[in-house]
Design a protein around this nucleic acid. Structure first.
Length: 197
DNA sequence: CACTAGATGCTCT
DNA sequence: GAGCATCTAGTGA
């Protein structure tokens, strides 16, 4: 079940759609991701080089990069690229398919459909915080990423990334077409470039 | 439904 | 101190 995450991150990102990320009793089927290409991507945390925060992205692939933002939210990424090359896939949204009661308790009064609809919500539903930063995802640990048997997603669409203020014209956001669990957030108001489909 | 504004604290300059 | 890879509650139609 080896999983090659060392190729170009924009090619790897869509292959994560439909996979399941689980932490303890809670499992989430990924329906929306975004690619961040480290040193070549001005929107990436790793664009300006290695820091204490983004060190995991520079490490070997298949590890969890957790960061904290907007004062109240965590977000999860899968580090990609070979050791020493910084790239990652932000897990933006998913469908809770296991442990919905636990996730709901953590999220308060939230509809099941909204439990992991957005990066901050997804992290909260899974109970992921900074203590899990750097965790290996492919070795069968407490946090694991795995493909599910059966066919993959029917159709995948791509578009501009959400919430980033630069390079918004690069269509590196990927989601499962028509899936109700995809987040509906608008692009950053700072992102001036138009995207027309 | 669409849109706006405020919360909130870590990280890097 | 400024700027966030965000979310929620509020308003108005």
């Amino acid at each position: 079940m080896s999983w090659d995450l060392t190729g170009p991150v924009w090619e790897i990102a869509p292959t994560l759609l439909g996979a399941v990320l689980s932490h303890g009793p809670v499992g989430v089927r990924l329906v929306e991701v975004e690619a961040y290409d480290g040193a070549n991507d001005p929107a990436s945390h790793a664009y300006r080089g290695r820091t204490a925060r983004n060190a995991v992205m520079f490490g070997p692939p298949g590890h969890l990069y957790v960061y904290f933002t907007y004062g109240m939210h965590y977000a999860c990424n899968v580090a990609c690229g070979p050791d020493g090359v910084a790239s990652g896939v932000l897990l933006r949204a998913g469908e809770v398919i296991e442990g919905a009661e636990v996730a709901q308790a953590r999220r308060g009064n939230s509809k099941v459909r909204d439990l992991a609809r957005g990066p901050g919500r997804l992290a909260q539903a899974l109970g992921i915080d900074r203590s899990l930063n750097g965790t290996a995802l492919l070795g069968g640990g407490v946090v694991s990423l795995s493909r599910r048997p059966g066919p993959g997603p029917d159709r995948i669409e791509a578009g501009p990334r959400v919430g980033v203020s630069v390079a918004a014209d690069v269509p590196w956001r990927f989601w499962i077409a028509g899936d109700p669990h995809v987040s509906t957030y608008k692009r950053s108001p700072r992102a001036a470039t138009d995207f027309t489909r």
